[in-house]
Design a binder for these strands. Structure first.
Lengths: 144, 144
DNA sequence: ATAATATAGTTGGGTATGCAACGAATTTTG
DNA sequence: CAAAATTCGTTGCATACCCAACTATATTAT
């Protein structure tokens, strides 16, 4: 059978991004910030490196997303006392409505993506995609 | 269960793109052209609109990828006689080694992505991802 | 302790991509 | 048939992203 995993992943990713962009426009952020804002919300004080690792983003990408969130006043950073290179990130009050909106949009997108799936298929999809993304991180990267 | 389909799709897509970029560097193309070159190879005379639809790419994205392939001499276009707006696309001899390379890389990526999968899981992954990408095209887009 | 290495984060540059506005050709409508 | 609407493709602009080079701080090795 012809496998076309990447083609499907690409379509899912692009369409989801476009949906996020439309849904978050009113908050002045795009698809590129949602992941980071929620992660900071869920892990107060998280440093940039951890964000990069968790999303498998380049450090530069993470820096720029974080800068945008900071400019908008949605997060703030504190320098770590012990390691002065490290910035600990926190969500600001102002961002709470945005966080809630992102959760809702994420939920919506994920349920639209699994339209017509049985409960079993949906669970299986989660497991398979997780495994595949782990493989991507392990076997498709240059280093490691 | 918490669904995170988009996160996984995003990682798979980004890592695959990076792999394509590294693997195709010697041919002066990047991840953004592989889909189009193969499709033109498999469907001689295909117009730009069909490429856009099949990959669910924006028309502008398709135009730019096609322009790059043309500049490199990998494809040529012919104006349709009946409908003068339409460009029919064809692969040039020069591109054959590139086409073969892309097939090999695609195969490699897809097999790396399914590392550790049973035959059943692999087949299931294809079915589920296909379905999900169709849902993305149907339910996540603005129009239609 | 000092030199070599490693790590956190930033920056500059390039590619991929979507979106909106456009021009040209075609089709549909009244 | 002429005007309006649609369709094919292009272009300009903006965002997301990776990569490589860099600074500053921290850690390890000699």
């Amino acid at each position: 059978m012809e496998k076309r995993f990447t083609r499907y992943a690409s379509i899912i990713d692009r369409q989801s991004k476009s949906y996020y962009d439309r849904a978050l426009k009113e908050y002045k952020i795009g698809c590129g910030q949602q992941f980071f804002l929620l992660w900071i919300y869920e892990s107060p004080g998280v440093p940039l490196t951890v964000l990069s690792e968790q999303g498998r983003f380049d450090k530069g990408t993470t820096t720029k997303a974080v800068q945008k969130l900071k400019q908008l006043g949605y997060i703030r950073s504190e320098q770590d006392e012990k390691d002065k290179r490290m910035q600990k990130l926190f969500v600001e009050e102002k961002a709470i409505p945005v966080v809630e909106k992102i959760y809702a949009v994420r939920e919506k997108i994920n349920s639209l993506l699994s339209t017509g799936f049985t409960k079993e298929e949906e669970a299986l999809a989660g497991i398979i995609l997780k495994k595949m993304s782990e493989n991507a991180g392990t076997y498709l990267t240059e280093n490691k």
